[in-house]
Structures are given as C-alpha cells and as structure tokens.
C-alpha cells in the first residue's frame, strides 16, 4: 500500500518520545551513582536491592492497599450508578452520563484542592457539625489515609462508571428477556447474565482506576499532607528533591512491571470486543 509512508512521522515521534524515554529510564535504573549523584554507566543492582528494604516495601504495600481500596469503592459505588444510568431513557442517559464526566473537565488540581477546603478544620463540614452540636471540636478530616482514599475515589470514579456504562448500554435487552423467559428472577438475571456480560467493562474500569490510583502523588500530597507516602511521592521525591534518578527510575520500573502484571491478569477476563472507553 502506498499509504505506508503516512505512518513515518508518528513512528518517529513514538520512537523518540514514547520508547526512548522508557529505555533511558530502564538504563538509568541499572546505573551506578557517583558520590555527587551523577550517573555512571556501570551496571548495578543496587537500586532494586535498596527498594527491598522494609521502609520502601512498606510504601509499596501502602500504595497497593490504598489503590485497591479505592478501586473496590469505585466499583461498589460506580456499578449501580452505571446500571441506573443505562436503564434511563435514551435522552436522559446522555445527559446523566455527561453530568458524570463534566467534573473531569474542570482541572484535576482544582477538584482536589476543593476537597482540601471541604475537609479543613475550619471547613464547612466541621463548621456544620460544630454548629449542630454534634461535635465539640473539629474532626481531623484532612491529612490522613481516609482523605487520600476519598480523593482517589472522587477523582477516578468516572473512569469506572464510563466503561461499565458503555457495556451495559450496548447489552441486548433480548438477552435479559430470554433469561426471564427461561425462569430467572431479577437477581438471577443480574448474577448470571448482566454481571458476567459486563465483565469487560468492569475490568477496563478496574484498570483505569487502579492505575492512576497506584501512581498518584498529588492526591496523597495535598490530602495526605505528606503523612501518606505512596510510590508516586517516592518517585517525585527521588527525581526532584533527592536527585537520585537511578533509584527513582528503579521504582518507576517496578511500578510499570506491577501494572503490566495487573493488566495481564485482568485482560484474561476481558473478551476481544471488550468495552473500553471508546
């Protein structure tokens, strides 16, 4: 085909800006470090070994745990929501869905900052509770893991609802009728037909929530107030503060491997035509 040359600009672009940077990171993660933090091209396993120290493994564990908790909450809250929207009339459906995506269009930093305001000691939640006499002194709502989880759920829940909704909306109403015709009750229809058929959407949703959740550093930074160190914070710190790029690269590589593993596991449950975002 004559059109092959059309792919050349993109191929070059991807090579330089997608692939090369990752290669650089991979190389750095095995490079030694000079006393002043400079990169010396001598193979070492030092940075990966360092990550195995309990203090860093703890960060890894906390990151995974928080990401998993937020993913599960997003699923539990988002699935029923996707179902409710998919059952609405066609006109309503579009509007409801757009309303769900709308907050995504406002700035991510501003959204997270809004929660800082909400959860502050002098914030409206505490003020309301104080004035109602339910509490005597402000609750510590901000700067803990709870606030971080909340921030993750708030920011990422549209990524769960979107793919689940798109699968549910495409599902043939006939199949549900057929199941009812064969004697299934509403609960059985859900468990045996709707849920299994929506699995591709659920898997997409899980990936799309888990991934940013496990790698974020803004949410933990703003809402965790430096109390909750996650993988993302660690990487940011190594690159911008500690200036240990080799170690930062190693952590990034580990995070990528984790995500690849998570995606391979989940893609097993995902059929060919699975419901992504598009």
């Amino acid at each position: 085909m004559k059109k092959k040359w059309l792919s050349i600009p993109y191929a070059l672009w991807a090579l330089i800006f997608s692939i090369a940077p990752l290669v650089i990171i991979a190389v750095y993660s095995f490079c030694s470090r000079s006393p002043y933090g400079k990169i010396i091209y001598k193979f070492t396993f030092e940075h990966y070994r360092k990550f195995m120290e309990p203090i860093y493994l703890n960060v890894l564990w906390r990151s995974l745990l928080l990401a998993m908790i937020s993913t599960v909450v997003c699923l539990l809250v988002g699935y029923p929501m996707a179902m409710i929207i998919s059952k609405a009339s066609l006109k309503k459906r579009n509007i409801l869905m757009m309303l769900f995506v709308l907050p995504l269009w406002t700035n991510f930093l501003l959204r997270t900052y809004a929660w800082m305001v909400l959860l502050r000691d002098q914030g409206p939640i505490n003020q309301l509770l104080l004035s109602l006499g339910i509490i005597d002194e402000p609750l510590k709502l901000l700067y803990n893991t709870g606030a971080v989880t909340l921030g993750m759920v708030y920011n990422f829940i549209p990524f769960m609802v979107l793919p689940v909704y798109s699968v549910l909306a495409k599902m043939d109403e006939c199949l549900i009728e057929a199941a009812k015709d064969l004697g299934a009750t509403s609960t059985q229809v859900f468990l045996k037909i709707t849920l299994p058929l929506s699995m591709p959407g659920v898997v997409s949703g899980i990936i799309m929530v888990f991934m940013p959740a496990v790698s974020t550093f803004v949410i933990s930074d703003l809402l965790g107030g430096g109390q909750t160190i996650l993988l993302g914070n660690l990487i940011q710190n190594q690159f911008l503060v500690a200036r240990n790029w080799q170690f930062g690269s190693a952590i990034s590589m580990i995070m990528m491997v984790l995500i690849v593993i998570a995606m391979t596991i989940s893609s097993k449950y995902k059929s060919e035509d699975g419901g992504g975002l598009w």
Binding site: I16, P21, L22, P212, T216, F217, I235, F239, G248
Partner: peptide, 14 residues
C-alpha cells in the same frame, strides 16, 4: 497505559 508519572519523569530524563 503508562502511568502519567512515568511519562513525566521519563520525558524529563530524555
């Protein structure tokens, strides 16, 4: 599929 933070730091490195 790559986390934003990895895109960010790898581009920085580049």
């Amino acid at each position: 599929m790559n986390p934003d933070i990895v895109i960010g730091i790898s581009l920085l490195a580049l």
